[in-house]
Lab assay of single mutants.
Amino acid sequence: DRYEFNINGVHFTIDDAEEELIKLIEELLKRGARAEEIEEVIRRWER
């Protein structure tokens, strides 16, 4: 599934997002994580 979200006006799209990654990102968003922090999480996840 495609997952899309915005952080401070920056648009992100993840194709074939796994449910666990989506939950992790949503938790980070609730905590007010910065875009750079979430980008790093996504990079690590994709390795």
Rank of each mutant, 00 (worst) to 15 (best):
8 N>D: 15
30 K>Q: 13
4 E>W: 03
23 K>C: 04
40 E>Y: 05
25 I>L: 10
20 E>Y: 06
39 E>I: 15
3 Y>W: 11
44 R>W: 11
46 E>V: 07
4 E>G: 02
9 G>S: 02
9 G>P: 00
42 I>K: 01
23 K>Q: 15
18 E>L: 04
35 A>M: 12
7 I>N: 03
8 N>Q: 07
21 L>V: 05
45 W>P: 06
31 R>G: 11
42 I>H: 01
9 G>R: 00
45 W>N: 13
42 I>F: 05
46 E>Y: 08
46 E>H: 11
12 F>H: 04
24 L>D: 07
24 L>T: 12
10 V>C: 14
34 R>V: 14
25 I>W: 00
18 E>R: 02
35 A>N: 06
43 R>C: 09
18 E>F: 04
27 E>C: 14
17 A>W: 04
33 A>P: 08
33 A>V: 11
24 L>H: 10
14 I>N: 00
24 L>G: 04
12 F>S: 01
15 D>S: 06
9 G>H: 01
47 R>V: 14
12 F>W: 05
1 D>I: 15
23 K>M: 13
45 W>C: 05
14 I>Q: 01
3 Y>C: 02
19 E>R: 05
25 I>K: 00
47 R>E: 13
38 I>D: 00
43 R>H: 15
40 E>K: 10
15 D>C: 06
42 I>D: 00
41 V>Y: 06
7 I>G: 01
38 I>K: 00
9 G>I: 02
38 I>E: 00
23 K>E: 11
34 R>L: 11
10 V>E: 08
9 G>E: 07
29 L>H: 03
31 R>E: 09
34 R>A: 14
15 D>H: 08
40 E>P: 03
38 I>N: 00
39 E>S: 13
14 I>E: 01
32 G>M: 05
41 V>E: 10
27 E>T: 14
30 K>E: 11
3 Y>Q: 01
34 R>E: 15
24 L>I: 13
30 K>T: 13
25 I>Q: 00
2 R>S: 09
19 E>I: 12
36 E>Y: 08
44 R>D: 15
36 E>W: 09
47 R>P: 12
33 A>N: 04
45 W>D: 07
14 I>F: 04
17 A>C: 04
30 K>F: 14
33 A>F: 05
39 E>N: 07
3 Y>E: 01
9 G>C: 02
5 F>H: 02
16 D>Y: 15
12 F>I: 08
20 E>D: 11
29 L>R: 06
32 G>Q: 09
